[in-house]
Nucleic acid binder design. Structure first.
Lengths: 85, 85
DNA sequence: AGCCATTTGTTCGTATGTATA
DNA sequence: TTATACATACGAACAAATGGC
């Protein structure tokens, strides 16, 4: 069973939704919701959980990939990057 | 022999293709192109017949499953749901 | 048993158009 | 005008299960 989201996207907030989601996901990674080398929920699942568009989810993921927190394997999923790699 | 499609998808129409297809398929069901508990064409066949992407076909089917007009059996096919069930 | 074609399920990649702030 | 977001669509690849041979 996947842990439940602990925060929601606020479309009225100054921070755009994609940055909000990036922050939320990073917090969940650090909290250990998903272990290193394990997949986070699929883009479609995140769309459903946070009620935002897939393009927005992808953008948030791109931020975390840039930061080295996640890596994507095409047709497989998005995974938590092990530390120091 | 399968009945031939009677309508085509119009990508320029205001109604999106997946809704157009849902309407077309529903009309064909009601007309009796396929009997209750019988399979409609496979996703791949509908892709070929209507010239649209599989994801679009699946979305149209999802609409009709939601409406209770069809039911899906994984690895077997998509079937016309008998009335009053 | 093994092989193979069929079929639905899932996932990311990419593109377009529209709307809004 | 630009940035952001949403909706929709097509593409590609693979998984898993079924059924025939």
């Amino acid at each position: 069973m996947e842990p439940e989201p602990d925060a929601r996207i606020d479309h009225g907030a100054p921070l755009p939704p994609y940055r909000q989601l990036a922050g939320i996901l990073l917090a969940r990674i650090r909290r250990g919701d998903w272990q290193p080398n394990r997949a986070i929920p699929s883009e479609a699942q995140l769309v459903g959980e946070y009620g935002i568009a897939r393009a927005t989810v992808r953008r948030a993921i791109a931020v975390l990939v840039d930061q080295g927190a996640l890596f994507v394997v095409p047709q497989r999923g998005t995974f938590v990057k092990p530390e120091g790699e």
